Simulated scan of single mutants.
Amino acid sequence: MSSLVVPPALLRWVAGIDVAAAAGSPAVDVPDHAITLLLRSDKRELMVMGPRTRAGYHVSAPGHSCVRVRMRPGRAQALLGRPLRDLADRALPLRELPGLDVDQFAADPVAALEGALADRPEPPERLEEAARLLARATVATTAARLHISERRLYTLFAEGTGLSPKHFARIDRVRTVLATDAGRWSDIAATAGYYDQSHMTAEFRHFMGVPPAAFTAGRRPAATPCTA
């Protein structure tokens, strides 16, 4: 997998752009609270992938490649023009995305997205601000800091991410653990915002299928053939 450089104008919308090629070896799709736009080279069909609430272990047939665009919180709702309540763990075809040429997107994802998003008004940043606060605060505290009710915060996340605030935060903490290169598990748990190491281990097992020590050592669930 190779990550493309996202220019400043696109960073308002996009968290990352990757081009991945299937190598026929086991791969892990980690849990992700983001909405992803995906284009497979063999199908030339644009897809929108909702939040992934559990890790997936799979093997893809070699030769295929795909472009994956990870959207910033709240941006996909504005881009697609619809709430995202029903998208968790689903992948749906996009008949069209106004302004985005699929062939150009396959050849030059950055240029294609720049052209498609250039004239779009930037959506409000409240959801992204809420996501930042949730990384270090409870749902109640986050709602209070934003001066909104907890019910309004739930609606904001459900429509803008397809997840509840609590579920969004749980996935974010697991991703923090996965992104940590080394260290004592107790320190990693504290850094990621868990109560203690046992809390982190239980949550990691829930989302990844195995405890963090086993995952790091390569003792992971068996990979299954990818049928997507």
Results as ranks from 00 to 15, higher is better:
residue 153 L to S: 03
residue 110 V to E: 05
residue 174 V to G: 10
residue 155 T to E: 12
residue 117 L to S: 02
residue 164 S to V: 11
residue 128 E to G: 14
residue 163 L to Y: 04
residue 167 H to P: 01
residue 165 P to N: 00
residue 156 L to H: 09
residue 142 T to W: 00
residue 115 G to M: 12
residue 132 R to I: 04
residue 103 D to C: 04
residue 104 Q to D: 12
residue 151 R to I: 10
residue 134 L to Q: 01
residue 89 D to E: 06
residue 137 A to T: 05
residue 148 I to S: 00
residue 127 L to W: 13
residue 78 A to P: 06
residue 121 P to R: 08
residue 149 S to I: 06
residue 134 L to D: 00
residue 77 Q to I: 02
residue 128 E to D: 08
residue 173 R to V: 02
residue 168 F to M: 09
residue 113 L to S: 14
residue 134 L to F: 11
residue 146 L to M: 00
residue 167 H to K: 13
residue 149 S to M: 12
residue 127 L to Q: 08
residue 108 D to N: 14
residue 179 A to V: 06
residue 149 S to N: 09
residue 130 A to D: 00
residue 79 L to E: 12
residue 162 G to L: 09
residue 154 Y to D: 15
residue 102 V to W: 03
residue 133 L to Q: 02
residue 147 H to N: 12
residue 101 D to V: 07
residue 135 A to P: 02
residue 77 Q to Y: 07
residue 88 A to H: 08
residue 138 T to P: 05
residue 137 A to N: 10
residue 130 A to M: 00
residue 88 A to Q: 05
residue 110 V to I: 13
residue 150 E to Y: 02
residue 142 T to N: 01
residue 145 R to G: 14
residue 99 G to S: 04
residue 179 A to W: 05
residue 81 G to Q: 10
residue 181 D to I: 04
residue 123 P to I: 00
residue 144 A to N: 07
residue 113 L to T: 10
residue 150 E to F: 03
residue 115 G to Y: 06
residue 173 R to P: 05
residue 178 L to V: 04
residue 175 R to H: 09
residue 125 E to F: 02
residue 111 A to L: 07
residue 170 R to D: 14
residue 87 L to K: 11
residue 135 A to Q: 10
residue 166 K to S: 15
residue 91 A to N: 08
residue 135 A to D: 08
residue 88 A to D: 03
residue 157 F to V: 00
residue 97 L to R: 10
residue 131 A to G: 06
residue 110 V to W: 13
residue 149 S to G: 15
residue 155 T to R: 10
residue 169 A to W: 05
residue 89 D to M: 10
residue 92 L to R: 14
residue 141 T to Q: 15
residue 80 L to F: 15
residue 174 V to M: 11
residue 115 G to H: 09
residue 162 G to Q: 05
residue 93 P to S: 04
residue 170 R to E: 15
residue 88 A to K: 01
residue 165 P to H: 01
residue 154 Y to E: 11
residue 177 V to M: 12
residue 110 V to H: 12
residue 120 R to G: 02
residue 167 H to W: 11
residue 138 T to D: 08
residue 179 A to P: 07
residue 91 A to C: 12
residue 141 T to F: 07
residue 90 R to F: 06
residue 141 T to A: 13
residue 78 A to H: 14
residue 79 L to V: 15
residue 106 A to G: 09
residue 123 P to V: 00
residue 134 L to A: 01
residue 138 T to I: 13
residue 179 A to G: 07
residue 158 A to S: 04
residue 88 A to Y: 08
residue 144 A to E: 14
residue 77 Q to V: 03
residue 134 L to W: 01
residue 87 L to N: 07
residue 117 L to M: 08
residue 164 S to L: 06
residue 134 L to E: 04
residue 112 A to R: 12
residue 181 D to F: 08
residue 165 P to K: 01
residue 111 A to N: 09
residue 155 T to H: 15
residue 143 A to M: 01
residue 86 D to P: 04
residue 88 A to S: 11
residue 153 L to V: 08
residue 114 E to K: 14
residue 138 T to S: 14
residue 104 Q to F: 03
residue 92 L to F: 13
residue 113 L to F: 12
residue 92 L to G: 02
residue 136 R to Y: 09
residue 159 E to G: 03
residue 170 R to Q: 13
residue 89 D to I: 11
residue 174 V to R: 11
residue 116 A to V: 10
residue 108 D to C: 02
residue 84 L to I: 03
residue 83 P to F: 01
residue 80 L to N: 05
residue 138 T to Q: 03
residue 118 A to I: 06
residue 159 E to W: 05
